[in-house]
Write a protein that binds this DNA or RNA. Structure first.
Length: 215
DNA sequence: CGATCACGTTC
DNA sequence: GAACGTGATCG
């Protein structure tokens, strides 16, 4: 019996110069040495570790993950199957300790899963890499592929526009304030009101929270 | 009140 | 999918 896959989350890319980061990284060396990058912590970021403004998502596989056995494979499979609109990149710690396992990890990530892999020496190494990708945003992203990545870029705003009272303009404004539909769903009426005004705020809140008749 | 937006209709 | 009209909403 496989556990249920994580919910499919529709994330929007973070603003320029920002990184969305899963909460568990808050006190890590990687985040602390991220220079010149604004960090948005998100506690529901289950599948990826980082989201970058160039629509890249990053999963970090540590030395410990690799040495501990094959359980890192499950994490990688879930990552790929999450079906996000982001270009998935896997950072793998290649250290003195994990070196001997690296070829096997590489084979699994690249050949079996078809993901991009970047070896890093450690968290400081990785933070430089992430800072470069955030800062050098203007340049082309070498990991960019599959045009189908663009599919959700149109789908997410279209989805938000299904909310009564929300059209093209407000959908885009909302997605600038909330990095995911999930965050939008959990927003308080007061928070919504400051963004789209009272009328739409109520419609949005009841869209997500109204009860089905009889339950 | 004037600008902006949602939303339906039209071609 | 562009262009319009209309009514609601916002500051």
């Amino acid at each position: 019996m496989e556990p249920l896959p994580p919910p499919l989350l529709f994330y929007a890319a973070p603003p320029h110069g920002h990184v969305i980061c899963s909460e568990k990284w808050r006190n890590s060396p990687l985040v602390q040495s991220l220079k010149g990058v604004q960090i948005i912590f998100e506690n529901e970021l289950r599948v990826a570790d980082f989201l970058l403004p160039n629509k890249t998502s990053v999963l970090y596989v540590s030395e410990c993950d690799i040495i501990a056995g094959s359980s890192y494979k499950r994490k990688l499979v879930r990552y790929r199957n999450a079906g996000s609109s982001f270009q998935e990149v896997v950072l793998v710690e290649k250290t003195r300790l994990s070196e001997q396992y690296f070829p096997a990890v590489q084979r699994f990530v690249v050949f079996d899963l078809g993901l991009s892999l970047l070896p890093v020496g450690g968290q400081t190494d990785a933070s430089q890499l992430i800072a470069q990708m955030v800062h050098g945003e203007g340049r082309e992203n070498p990991f960019r592929r599959r045009s189908s990545c663009r599919l959700l870029d149109r789908l997410v705003p279209a989805l938000v526009q299904q909310i009564p009272g929300v059209g093209k303009v407000k959908a885009l404004v909302l997605l600038r304030h909330f990095s995911s539909v999930q965050q939008l769903c959990n927003a308080s009426p007061a928070e919504l009101e400051s963004i789209v005004g009272q009328a739409s705020a109520q419609q949005i809140h009841s869209f997500f929270h109204k009860q089905i008749a009889g339950t």
